[in-house]
């Protein structure tokens, strides 16, 4: 029984794959839109049928007419409900990575055609839905959260978009594969020795002033920058808060290496590295990363952290 159900499901998936192949940009149309009455739609038809019987029995043509009108409205609703989804263009957008076990988010851009598309509901299976309406010629962007279960690129499955607008009598939906993947960073695993080489000592306790060597320029102060590196002189001159930037020569900086974490399961190694990346970043200390298949030169800052986390997420073919 179970096997049969699985077989049916896999057949269905194959058919879907064939009918609506994955694409970064999908325009909804006859080919990929499904439509079926809702329970309410059936109730509506039932009322129409009741009125029909009443009209026949009371020989009341107006009652009959009313019942026919309800049926006609239902049929017109098919057209309108279908149209509400047809012509919508869905485009895979940006992504917001997250740690394994938490949620990331993927952006879906929804473009309208020449008429409004209202009350579209988008969601990935198992994730909360978002409502969106698109005015003609506009584009809306929806961030849909994705449950991250495994390190690496997480494919959230087929995006489900559905709508009951305008009358709620019918539901029209599509299941499209936007070929978008969220990135799952490894879950940080605290503790243990810092898996680093280089630097002044192995524990990573290093001179606090970052890269004092070469003054490289100023940039706008960003929350989180060390107050020590703020250019107070220019602040006193009324030029606002700026952070002094220094270039750190690569020698003598801390390298976090995959190799130094021997005797662990690969996933645990990534988790530990992740923890240390976050830890070092919190202390504004430059660090580099050496993984089996990639390497990141030492630096610090938010962009660097993102880069490091991404490498950790994608390393090992993840």
């Amino acid at each position: 029984m179970k096997a049969l159900r699985r077989r049916i499901r896999s057949l269905y998936q194959r058919w879907l794959q064939h009918r609506i192949p994955p694409s970064r940009r999908v325009q909804l149309g006859q080919r990929n839109i499904f439509i079926f009455p809702t329970g309410y739609g059936f109730l509506f038809l039932l009322i129409a049928a009741l009125l029909f019987v009443a009209g026949i029995n009371y020989e009341n043509n107006l009652l009959l007419g009313f019942s026919f009108l309800l049926v006609s409205i239902f049929l017109m609703a098919i057209l309108h409900t279908f149209r509400n989804l047809a012509g919508v263009v869905l485009i895979a957008g940006d992504l917001r990575p997250g740690f394994v076990g938490a949620r990331g988010a993927l952006e879906v851009r929804v473009q309208g055609g020449s008429y409004p598309h209202r009350s579209l509901t988008l969601h990935w299976p198992g994730s909360p839905a978002e409502d969106v309406s698109v005015e003609p010629g506009r584009e809306e962007s929806v961030w849909l959260s994705v449950n991250l279960t495994r390190r690496g690129r997480e494919h959230p499955g087929r995006l489900r978009i559905d709508s009951r607008y305008p009358l709620g009598l019918l539901r029209t939906w599509s299941m499209i594969d936007l070929d978008s993947r969220c990135i799952a960073w490894p879950k940080p695993l605290p503790g243990g020795e810092c898996p680093g080489t280089g630097g002044d000592d192995d524990s990573g306790r290093q001179a606090q002033d970052q890269g004092s060597e070469d003054f490289d320029g100023l940039r706008n102060y960003v929350a989180g920058d060390s107050l020590r590196s703020v250019d107070w002189k220019s602040y006193a001159r009324g030029r606002g808060l700026n952070t002094k930037q220094f270039t750190d020569p690569a020698e003598g900086r801390l390298w976090l290496t995959w190799e130094s974490l021997t005797g662990h399961d690969p996933e645990i190694r990534y988790s530990k590295l992740c923890y240390w990346v976050l830890e070092l970043d919190r202390e504004h200390r430059p660090y580099g990363l050496i993984l089996p298949d990639s390497q990141l030169d030492p630096a610090s800052g938010a962009a660097h952290r993102e880069r490091a986390l991404e490498l950790l997420a994608l390393s090992g073919g993840g």
């Binding site: 026949i56 043509n61 026919f68 009108l69 049926v71 006609s72 409205i73 049929l75 609703a77």
Partner: peptide, 23 residues
């Protein structure tokens, strides 16, 4: 919606066979 449904309603009104009362 109602206006668009009207023509179809008229067709149904004219063509759907009338029965004698069921009861």
């Amino acid at each position: 919606l109602v206006l668009q449904a009207l023509p179809l309603m008229m067709v149904l009104f004219v063509l759907v066979p009338r029965f004698p009362p069921l009861w």
